[in-house]
Amino acid sequence: MSTPAPAALSAAAGAGGAGSRPVPARPAKSKRSGRGRTRAEIAILLGPALIVFVGFVMAPMAVAAYSGFYSWNGYGPLTNYVGFDNYKEVLSDPKFFTALKNNLFILVMSLVLQGPLAIVIALLLNRKMRGRSTLRVLLFVPYVISEAIVGVGWRLILGTGKEGGALNALLRAVGLDGLQHYWLNKGTAVWVLLLICTWKYLGYAIILFLAGMQGIPEELSEAAQVDGASFWRVQWHITLPLLGPTLRIWAFLSIIGSLQLFDLVYVVWGKAAPSVDVSTMASYMVLNGRNTLRYGFGNAAAVVMFLVSLVIALAYQRFVLRRDTEGATTDGN
């Protein structure tokens, strides 16, 4: 996806990350007591996070996943074992694949739209100039508003009828009557979803990139600028390659987020999501699982969703992230 950072540069920068590997053994005094001590350190540092995570996240998820093998209405013990029936039903339902298709559309378009946009904005906001703090805060506001309210607000803006909603009224007011549209309906719905997602999550990408840029030494770009390179040239050749690890992590989170997308779809379209072709795997799961009290089926759909995400994540890790998490994806040593 992105070009590898030149080894020399990243070693010089350190922050590039590409070149720096985990420190091997401690240089001194770590021959005998070292191993036990290292284990103790790992336990102390990793233990608390692991316990909280396994207890509150993984264990409940495992239980939920297990119920995917049952016909279960959400009440009482699991008694009616149905094997892979729920899974077969999910995988033979064209509606599920329509949903998956929408997830993939959002996934690809989010990367293509949000990534470059957020990089450019982050570069601008990273410059030392008056007012940048205010700009940062204002661009971050959409991310702070909860999905539920974002949904209410955008529904009022987009309206339901051809003449409804603030946007259509605005178009009328400026004489663009011809552009009035049923924005939430089939055809435009998935684009509207993309728009809302971009609007809402751009701030997230921006602050992530800004944080990543702080690891890039100013000397490099300053030196290059002194040598007469333009601002954008410097960014392209120096900042961007060094931002690689952050970019790849953002893309990873964005991909997973796109595959799990639910709140915005459900708040804006609710049960109409399938009929205007904007359903996602998660909305499929809720509409056909929880809402029909077929919890076992819904949980099987969640497992399918998990597997889809896992396959995509593994592929991503294999081909893109490997560099950054070297040793972390496969048991190093």
Partner: peptide, 23 residues
């Protein structure tokens, strides 16, 4: 560097892929 590091990393990453509402 230790055995199981990749496993733990993947374990945490897997937490992103399963919706909370289900569990």
């Amino acid at each position: 560097q230790f055995k199981g590091r990749g496993f733990f990393y993947s374990l945490f990453a897997a937490g992103l892929m399963f919706p909370l509402s289900v569990a």
